[in-house]
Write a protein that binds this DNA or RNA. Structure first.
Length: 436
DNA sequence: TCTGGGGTCCTAGGACCC
DNA sequence: TCTGGGGTCCTAGGACCC
């Protein structure tokens, strides 16, 4: 018999327009203006004026924009060129991640002083379990949630004191509802939603506001006539299961009813680390081969550096390519011994590359290492010594016929064959001879 | 004038082992 | 010469999130 769990008190805290707000901290004269953070470098400024969106050329998207820029239609993820058409006069600043990480640590520490059970959800947001914080569950005056509300306000005050920045907080019995309601009164909001408020406060919202319902699922629901969370809540389990599968359907229905048992997870281990880059112009595997080889090697070394700096090694090395038509393919390969060595990563990644048909120009190249474990000692992966008596070689798996078809589609024309992978098995990037 | 970079989780099929 | 089921690992792709 599943006893009802004791009701919880969960907060979701989200920094308001975080990157843009950090930029305004050091450039207060820009307050009130449309400001966009994004792009690779500072765009050229005319005279001593600030760099403007209209002067930017090249690839890139908006990372964050101030509320003034959002009012002009400029939102995160939008291409900078398209944004420039909407807000040519907006000021464009390059991202300074070191500074954002510094402020991120500050705001999280400020919260931890009052409530230590924090789940990290990235640079600018966290969940906080307030269930066991003294006073949080006390009624204050006629407000049964007064203690929680006061605590949430204290969290906001602490964050502002530590960083000079505002945030929005949602307070609810679970993470799902807390996340939705932190967004209901941005910026600088404090919103409480309890189970009995779900019908009045949550059901009128579009399904897209459920964390986990993205563009695809919401479009699918729309096409089936389900627009709001309330309409989703009215569907039968069988109907949802038919359209979304048993598992996903069940989850959608529970979410629509504001139900969510997930705990606040205060500690976690990384699963993978990766580096990728989108080129300024699409590169051709043959004519830009040398350049691609250097970029490829550099990505491998940077992933290796990241792993070593953080004390991890990984067994599964993978690559990611995006072609000029935006099609993305990945290949990966699991090796016997985990590594954080750039050269070993490069070798495995090179093997992966041989399995891809390189007949189109590329816009992106990425390298990933997964299957992580903690590095033990220096360059001593745990399995190298712990495995007795000898490290087991990786089983040789012959690719299936289907996999082979996918990896190397039979060239249908002579021309296609000329472009196939056999001509350039990988972008050899021999290390230059040592200078001494 | 399209569409960044760093992640997580899920699914599904095949290999392989018992 | 054919037929099992279950469990785990590996790989590829896709949805989604910040």
């Amino acid at each position: 018999m599943a006893d009802a769990l004791p009701p919880r008190l969960i907060a979701h805290l989200d920094m308001d327009a975080f990157y843009a707000s950090v930029e305004l901290l050091r450039r207060p004269e820009l307050r009130g203006l449309p400001v966009v953070v994004g792009g690779r470098r500072a765009s050229p400024a005319a005279g001593d004026d600030w760099p403007r969106l209209r002067d930017y050329t090249g690839r890139g998207v908006v990372t964050t924009s101030t509320y003034e820029a959002r009012a002009l239609g400029v939102h995160s993820g939008m291409g900078l060129m398209r944004s420039a058409a909407l807000a040519p006069q907006a000021i464009l600043l390059p991202a300074d991640f070191d500074e954002y990480r510094r402020l991120s640590r500050l705001f999280k520490a400020a919260v931890a002083e009052l409530a230590p059970a924090i789940e990290d959800r990235g640079i600018d947001e966290i969940y906080i379990d307030l269930s066991d914080v003294p006073g949080a569950r006390e009624a204050v005056g006629h407000d049964p949630l007064g203690g929680a509300r006061a605590l949430a306000q204290e969290l906001k005050n602490n964050v502002r004191r530590a960083t000079g920045l505002s945030c929005s907080v949602g307070l609810a019995p679970n993470k799902l509802l807390a996340k939705i309601c932190s967004d209901l009164d941005k910026p600088d909001g404090l919103t409480v939603v309890m189970a009995e408020d779900v019908a009045s406060r949550i059901w009128p919202l579009p399904v897209r506001r459920i964390h986990g319902v993205g563009p695809k699922a919401s479009a699918r629901l729309e096409s089936l006539g389900v627009h709001t969370i309330g309409e989703l809540a009215r569907q039968s389990p069988a109907w949802l299961s038919d359209h979304f599968g048993a598992h996903h359907g069940e989850w959608l229905l529970a979410a629509a009813h504001g139900q969510d048992d997930r705990p606040v997870v205060t500690e976690s281990e990384p699963v993978s680390m990766s580096r990728e880059t989108t080129f300024e112009r699409d590169l051709h595997p043959r004519t830009d081969r040398a350049l691609l080889g250097r970029i490829f090697t550099d990505l491998c070394e940077r992933v290796g550096d990241d792993l070593r700096r953080k004390g991890y090694v990984g067994r599964t090395i993978g690559i990611k390519l995006r072609f000029d038509d935006f099609r993305t393919v990945t290949r990966d390969h699991t090796v016997a011994l985990p590594t954080a060595d750039g050269q070993l990563i490069r070798a495995a990644a090179g093997q992966c590359l041989k399995r891809i048909n390189l007949s189109r120009r590329l816009r992106l190249l990425g390298v990933r290492v997964g299957n992580l474990s903690h590095a033990v000692g220096i360059d001593t992966p745990p399995t190298a010594t712990a495995r007795a008596p000898m490290p087991e070689p990786a089983p040789i798996r012959r690719p299936t016929a289907a996999a082979q078809r996918k990896a190397a589609p039979a060239p249908v024309e002579a021309g296609a064959q000329g472009q196939s992978l056999s001509l350039f098995p990988e972008w050899d990037d021999p290390a230059p001879p040592a200078p001494d």
